[in-house]
Amino acid sequence: MTSNNNNKTVPVTILTGFLGSGKTTLLNNILNDSTHGMKFAVIENEFGDVGIDEHVLSENVGEEIIEVMNGCICCTVRGDLVTALQKLHKQVASFDGVIIETTGLADPAPVCQTFFVDENIRKLYHLDCVVTVTDAKNILARLTDIKPDGVENEAEEQVAFADKILVNKTDLVTAETELAEIEKKLRALNPTASIQRCQQAKINPKDVLNIKAFDLDRVLEFDSEFLDEDQEHQHDATVTSVAMRMETDINQTLMECWIQRLISEDGANLFRYKGVLAVKGMDCKFVFQGVGMLFTGGYSDIKWKADEKRESRFVFIGKHLDHELYKLGFEACRVDQPLRFAVGSLVEANVGGYVKAKVLKQWDDGNAYRLEIQNKEKTNVWAPVDIDNYIRATAVNYN
């Protein structure tokens, strides 16, 4: 028996996978791919009270995007998911489907259960496929995480409920034997799901969309209580999210130094982090993300719109995080005060020693100042931060 597929209900694809596996990248690839010719609504879920992904998702999305915030979609906000699906139906009845991207800490079971135990949702939607994205570099470690008594391993649950498993980031695993070991472990947890390798979550969207893969009988074989609405589960209380939002530009150099310090000190405990930053002097959004000590970041092709509020936001998810430290560090990177030196001012720039320089521009390419060294070549340099370590008032009168 499969899910109640019929022409009157809207198919739903659930994207799950542990933090940092590549779910949002996969979703962007699907939304940017014009070959499938399908139109979807997207429901996003963040673990925390500050959303990131609506700023990261492709701007090619002409469809509906709904965020279900402040918790795990399998727990505290499940009622919000039902409400969102009910409100969304009139707009998406003619769509090709709905894609739900869950937080990396979600157990897929209650999400899947929604489409069977809620009578109203059953009449409107059917569950088409559960796609689990795994990170080839980290999945074996996640599957063997030691959890407190009574606490489930979310990575295991995500693999067990999958109809399709993507082994992503295979370029980070050099040995074929290691990939074979990963697939062996995945098949031990889920013998029936198809497994597909990929890099940067690049696949043919038709491999995961509207493939009628969800089989209720298979799920009931390994979870006989799947349809029991009274099921409860516990998350690891040591895993928390710290998130912050500021309606101000930030100094890129200070931010990068701060993030590098966090990664070097907390890297082993960081499951996932990402952010979208409004950098002073830059029109494009700075987007960063990472898992553990693997950090990537840079300016995207998406510019801040003229009528869009420039704001900077981040979320870090991991074990034993010092929330106050993270927030204070982020606050220290904000750009609220006017710069000390006006354009045309003569100053001293530190280029391995202090030399005479002239301020050509404030906030240039993300740096506090663009300076012209007062030498024969008129060399241009940047002062990234408005502090004496980089730029200071002249010690002598150069006029």
Rank of each mutant, 00 (worst) to 15 (best):
L328A: 12
F341W: 06
D163W: 09
V208P: 01
G329K: 09
F47W: 05
V133F: 05
L85S: 00
I99A: 02
L124H: 00
D388K: 10
K358L: 14
N190H: 09
E44K: 10
I263P: 00
K305W: 01
G97L: 07
R334M: 06
V359K: 03
V355P: 00
E178K: 14
Y369C: 04
V111R: 03
P338G: 06
N60A: 11
S241C: 09
P11G: 03
D388W: 02
V287M: 06
I121H: 02
Q374M: 15
G97D: 05
L186N: 02
V98A: 07
G352N: 13
G17H: 01
E157N: 14
A237K: 14
G318Y: 05
A160M: 14
T25P: 00
K376I: 06
W304L: 08
N70F: 04
H89M: 09
A349D: 03
G62D: 15
D80G: 12
Q374E: 12
P148H: 07
K319Y: 00
A268L: 13
V117R: 01
Y398I: 11
E225G: 08
L346Q: 08
D322T: 08
D236M: 05
A162D: 03
K285M: 06
K164Y: 14
P110R: 00
L15I: 05
R197M: 11
T103E: 02
E63W: 08
S3A: 15
I66V: 15
G71L: 10
A175Q: 15
V42W: 00
S21R: 10
Y390I: 11
I121D: 08
S3W: 11
P205W: 02
D386I: 09
T240D: 05
N350D: 07
V10L: 13
E156W: 03
L360I: 05
I65K: 05
N350K: 09
V111M: 09
E44W: 04
T16I: 01
G318D: 03
V130L: 02
G150N: 06
